[in-house]
Design a protein around this nucleic acid. Structure first.
Lengths: 113, 113
DNA sequence: GCAAATTAGTTTGCAATGCAAACTTATTGG
DNA sequence: CCAATAAGTTTGCATTGCAAACTAATTTGC
């Protein structure tokens, strides 16, 4: 038999979304029309390097769109979530929610003992 | 500046728990006193190899306890979650719940409340 | 006016990870 | 006795995430 009930959903989680750094990026993007690279860098605490590479993966997966332009004479990178990105995030959220219902109540055992 | 509000919690997720296969294992263990290796294998759909290595990591991290014995003449491996394991799982659940509150409502756009 | 520092990122190098396949070691069936 | 099964463990490898190094343009200091 395969995995049981909703718990089994955990194995189907989208690894592209599941990575904490990328989940954070997607979450921030989902709440704004467009976000600047530098803003995300501050927001996330990620180094430019890590942010850049996670950004590239999300872009490669079609979950975000990256626009490069200039502000004055300096380069400016802006990110925005795509419809596919929103769907992926929503699906991820649903799966996690399903899993969490099966997880033990966080309050249980807290005041035991 | 650090990450904002509850969203930033995502970066503090316990990677040992965050891995889907291990989360599944912990979730199953949390609902039973003791679980046999073979049962988990069926339950999770993981190969014996993967299960074995995830098991070892959880054990190394002190989140589960592994007892080896014999049933009749065959080896029998049983797993059970430790108090630390329960705490880790509860903490993980809390952090995720906090993050999910900030995530966009999956129903948004589908139907207004 | 040109060397140094800053801005805005990308690329590289590496250690750690997850997964599948191969490998034990013991037991049972023909 | 030989093959097959059971119950796991170990190995090999391709992928990852992260930090550090690098690039390239711009602005500042002297």
């Amino acid at each position: 038999m395969s995995t049981p009930g909703r718990l089994g959903e955990v194995m189907a989680l989208d690894r592209l979304v599941h990575e904490p750094a990328r989940l954070l990026i997607l979450a921030v993007l989902s709440g704004a029309k467009e976000v600047e690279f530098g803003f995300l860098e501050q927001m996330s605490g990620l180094s430019k390097g890590n942010l850049s590479s996670h950004m590239s993966k999300l872009e490669a997966g079609g979950l975000i769109e990256v626009k490069k332009s200039f502000r004055g004479k300096r380069p400016l990178t802006e990110l925005c979530i795509t419809p596919a990105g929103r769907r992926a995030l929503a699906a991820y959220r649903r799966q996690l929610a399903a899993v969490m219902q099966e997880l033990p109540d966080p309050a249980a055992g807290t005041k035991r003992r």
